[in-house]
Amino acid sequence: MKIKERTKKKKHTGKIIALIVIVGIASAVAYSYYQQKESEAHQWHWVSSGPFSINKNQYKLGENIFMIVNGLQPTDVGEIDIVDPEGGVYSKIPFNGTMKSSFKQFFKPVTERSLALCNATALVGNWNIVFKGVSYKSIPFKIINEFIPGEESGSGMAPVPKGLYPC
Results as ranks from 00 to 15, higher is better:
L61S: 04
H12E: 14
E146F: 01
V23H: 02
I3A: 13
G133D: 02
Q73K: 15
L115F: 11
E151H: 07
I93N: 01
I16T: 15
Y31D: 13
K142L: 14
V21C: 08
G62H: 01
D76R: 00
S102G: 12
S101Y: 14
V47A: 05
S48H: 09
L123N: 06
E38W: 07
G150P: 12
K132I: 15
N70F: 09
G88V: 04
Y31T: 14
P140L: 02
Y33Q: 08
R6V: 11
L123M: 08
Q36P: 04
P149Y: 05
V124C: 08
Q73R: 12
I25L: 03
S102E: 14
T75N: 07
S32R: 10
L117R: 02
N126H: 13
S114N: 04
Y59N: 05
K37V: 12
G14I: 12
Y34Q: 04
L115W: 03
N64S: 10
S27W: 08
I93V: 15
N55L: 01
T121F: 09
F66G: 06
G133R: 02
K108Y: 04
N55P: 01
Y165I: 02
K100S: 15
G88N: 14
V77A: 05
G78S: 01
G97S: 11
G87V: 04
I93T: 09
S39N: 12
E86G: 09
M1P: 03
S32A: 13
V23D: 04
S153K: 10
L19W: 07
F52S: 01
Q105L: 01
E79M: 15
K10L: 13
G154E: 07
V77T: 08
V23C: 13
F141V: 03
H12Q: 10
A28P: 05
V130G: 02
P74L: 11
